[in-house]
Nucleic acid binder design. Structure first.
Lengths: 191, 191
DNA sequence: ATCTCCATGTAACTCGTTACATGATTTT
DNA sequence: AAAATCATGTAACGAGTTACATGGAGAT
């Protein structure tokens, strides 16, 4: 039994380890709480759920749904949880990532200054908005005491990744602001 | 003339806007300075270079190479630079990113504590090493005065993205250490 | 009447990875 | 002698995006 699912498979298992969901729900969760660190479209989700079911890692119950097709609610099986645990024992591979903004800044010396400024200001606004959102969630989480929960509680790991989100946005924002400052130029001269 | 190259195309143009390179060189550059924010393998690079050449964005000179095939050295054309500039005018799209480690931490409540600890400690070591590397490069860059160069100098944008690299690694490292602290548990109790 | 949301799926395509292939030179 | 590095490419596959398709319910 070779594990080796695509990472999306583990993302779905991770969501379903918490509670059962339909494919539609899972697609939404891959936008909102997971979207920050793992995205996927529904066209990728539905077939993957079928494959996980075929592999015995999920079970589905179909009920007459609201769309033209029945709604299939998926739940993780013990084999699914075991596969998730084995995946956690393998080291995380750091995907170098593909960062559009960084690449653009790297190339930006060929552009006119206002073009670069607009680019970075847009990014700044975006990160500021995200940071705001995450900060609100984190303060609600702390108010509910989720930060004091043990690491075996899923709400603690929610909080842990949210905290990383905050760090990420703060770092990005600080960098955008530093860069904007440099692009606007030292007001008094080159010093 | 619809632009719309794959982003890899712009990454190659960005590198060649600085100076001409062979496909092999470019593959190396996509590991080292660019690898931090844009990765690609040589099997992706060679065909893409051909396509850029066919589109008139690059010119190639073939010379009898050291391998079985001639070495093709590519240089950007004015159409290539123009395409790069147009790309910079379009807003950067923020790719939610796919972060293996974050996903694993999100799922880690199902695992035994030592498994999670090992995972995060490995990540910590990796980020510490990267940070070290970036810090050394940045201090060399500052010693050479690259941080004071105008934004129209490619060495300034080198420095700018390096600075983001440092911020990124620092943020990651701080988070790993916070998480390790929480996983090891408050030594005196739950307070 | 039309639009959006709920809800599921498929098809066509592009992007990216791994593995295969070749062969000279340099290092261990 | 074996391995790594230089240097180019192709083939097969897997991952991911966009567009297509269907149809009910509720809102404008």
């Amino acid at each position: 039994m070779t594990d080796e699912l695509p990472t999306l498979g583990y993302a779905l298992l991770a969501l379903l380890a918490r509670e059962p969901h339909s494919g539609y729900d899972l697609s939404g969760l891959l936008r909102d709480p997971l979207g920050f660190f793992w995205e996927a479209r529904h066209s990728q989700v539905y077939p993957q759920l079928r494959r996980l079911e075929d592999a015995g890692l999920l079970m589905a119950v179909a009920e007459p749904g609201r769309g033209p097709r029945p709604t299939r609610t998926y739940a993780i099986t013990s084999a699914g949880t075991a596969a998730l645990r084995r995946w956690l024992e393998r080291p995380a591979r750091r995907w170098g990532g593909r960062e559009d903004l960084l690449l653009k800044v790297y190339a930006s010396w060929v552009a006119e200054l206002p073009v670069t400024l607009r680019l970075v200001r847009e990014a700044e606004a975006h990160h500021a908005a995200r940071l705001q959102l995450y900060l609100e969630r984190a303060s609600r989480a702390r108010a509910a005491g989720l930060d004091r929960l043990p690491p075996s509680d899923p709400r603690f790991t929610d909080y842990a990744v949210l905290r990383r989100g905050i760090g990420h946005e703060r770092g990005r924002l600080a960098w955008c602001r530093w860069l904007i400052g440099r692009l606007e130029g030292p007001p008094g001269g080159a010093a």
